[in-house]
Each structure stands twice: as C-alpha cells, then as structure tokens.
C-alpha cells in the first residue's frame, strides 16, 4: 500500500491543461495541416501528385490540392517536391463537418462547427459514443482509446466511450468499412436510439485509407451511415480527435479556447 502511495506521488498529476491551457507540444516532425506555396511549383511539375500513394494530391491550375480525407500524412509528397512547395505544418486542427471541405488548397480549413441547437443542447455536456472498428488497423482505435487515459481524460468534457450501442448517442467509426463489417455496422447503427450522430475517424473511415482500391471495403463510413464529423489522419493524433469532438459539441471557440458554458 505504501509503495502504491509513493508511486502515486512520484507519477504525479498528468492530465493536460489543454484546452484551458496551452495545447500539447507536438514533435518537430509531426505532420499536420499541409502548407502549400503554389508560387514555388516548377512549370509542369507533377512530383507531389505522382508520389502520393492514395491520389490525395491533385494538380489544379492554381497549384496542388490535397484531399485531407484521402491523405495519409505520409512524407512522400513533401519529400518528392524539389522546391518545398508542399510541406506539413504542426497544426493538428483538421476536423470538418462536410466531406468536400477536406479538399485543401491552402486557404484556411473550415474547421468543424458545432451541432445544431437541439443536438448541441442534448449532447453538448454529455456525449456517449460506441466505437466501431470496421477494418481499422488498431492505430486509430489506439489513439481513440488514449483519450480515455488520464492524460486526455475526455470524461472531464462529459464524453464517454460505452460498450452498448443502446447506451450511446452515436458511433465513432474507424476503418474503411470492410464488406465483412457492413452488416454489423448497420445493426450497431440501428441499435443506437435517435437522435444520433456519427464521427468518422481516420483516412480509412473517410475514404478507404491505404485500402481505397480494395474490393473488400466500401471506401469509408459514409457508404453506410450519415457522417457528422470527419477527423483526418493516419491515424489522427489524439489532439486532432479531441479538437474535433470539442468543436462538434460547441465546446471550443474559433481560437481554440474553451467556450463559455
């Protein structure tokens, strides 16, 4: 017992101050929101688009565009670019409400707005989610799980992962939705009482991820259920997921600070 207490004293209080305090420090090599400087693109260069494993990068007359829903946030495009016209910033805020808003060409991302008034009233201070992995590789799942550790402690925002869909206000879906999970996902969705929401976490759940060309998957959660929040990444950093959840619940102001309750 005394050893447990001493360990407790030594391990200390580890819950992040964020979002009331500063955001967690991300490593210098963290790959968040891309930065695009089309002025640097050499004429006729296609290096970034050709390097992209998921065809997330396309070229328009105005310069490269990145579909953040397909993007794996791998280093390939930035490495391939001879002029540094495409790179990754440490901005972890990536979540949006509509799929098409993820096509990014350099202008500010329209970060997720809060749920509509009635849903926000119901879920804003208490959101129970059933997580469904539908072909996820256990990386998205792991970084969703991390939110329940004492570091991120989503319980302090009234967010909880629950075991039964009957106890849930919505689904948090990972994975490209394999054909073998389609039925189970539908049944789980049907078991959640109305009103309900869906959060798609990770490149697979948004657009199939690395498996986008596989005939054994459906290209993401939206093929089966209506999605209310898209959280890009492969996997998204826990800060990205929590930022998206808090925005959806109207708990963050535009500048990232906690909204008045």
């Amino acid at each position: 017992m005394i050893k447990t207490l001493l360990a407790r004293a030594h391990q200390g209080h580890r819950t992040l101050a964020w979002p009331d305090g500063p955001p967690p420090e991300l490593p210098d090599r963290f790959r968040g929101l891309p930065a695009i400087d089309a002025a640097r693109c050499p004429d006729g260069c296609r290096a970034c688009a050709d390097a992209c494993p998921t065809e997330a990068v396309s070229l328009s007359p105005a310069g490269p565009r990145v579909d953040l829903g397909r993007c794996l946030f791998c280093p390939e495009c930035a490495e391939a670019c001879p002029e540094g016209a495409i790179s990754f910033t440490r901005d972890y805020r990536l979540s949006v409400r509509r799929r098409e808003e993820l096509v990014f060409s350099g202008e500010p991302l329209p970060l997720a707005t809060s749920l509509e008034t009635e849903l926000r009233r119901l879920f804003g201070r208490s959101l129970r989610l059933r997580q469904v992995s539908a072909g996820g590789c256990n990386a998205c799942e792991a970084d969703v799980n991390v939110l329940s550790t004492l570091v991120w402690d989503v319980g302090r925002f009234g967010i909880q992962m629950v075991a039964s869909p009957r106890h849930a206000d919505g689904l948090l879906i990972t994975g490209p939705v394999t054909r073998n999970m389609e039925l189970a996902l539908r049944k789980t969705w049907d078991a959640v009482p109305e009103p309900k929401i869906v959060i798609a976490v990770g490149a697979c759940a948004i657009a199939g991820g690395p498996f986008w060309q596989s005939p054994e998957q459906l290209g993401g959660a939206a093929a089966v259920v209506p999605v209310d929040l898209f959280v890009p990444g492969c996997p998204p950093h826990p800060a990205t997921i929590l930022d998206g959840l808090l925005r959806l619940l109207g708990r963050l102001e535009k500048d990232g600070r906690v909204a008045a309750r």
């Binding site: 256990n138 990386a139 394999t178 054909r179 690395p210 060309q213």
Partner: peptide, 30 residues
C-alpha cells in the same frame, strides 16, 4: 474472425508500387 479482412495480400501482389508501404504499415497498425 475475418471481419477486418481488407485483402492485404492481393493488394500487395503486383508491387512494389507506391501504395505498398502504407499498406504494409497498416497490416496491423500497432
């Protein structure tokens, strides 16, 4: 089991191609 089947091995056949490494990295993401 089988619910997570994404057809990894057939996606790797014909490679190496530019999608190979991300597929390998997510065979088991942990």
């Amino acid at each position: 089991l089988g619910y997570q089947h994404r057809d990894v091995e057939r996606a790797l056949a014909g490679g190496p191609h530019k999608g190979t490494v991300p597929i390998v990295e997510t065979i088991a993401g942990d």
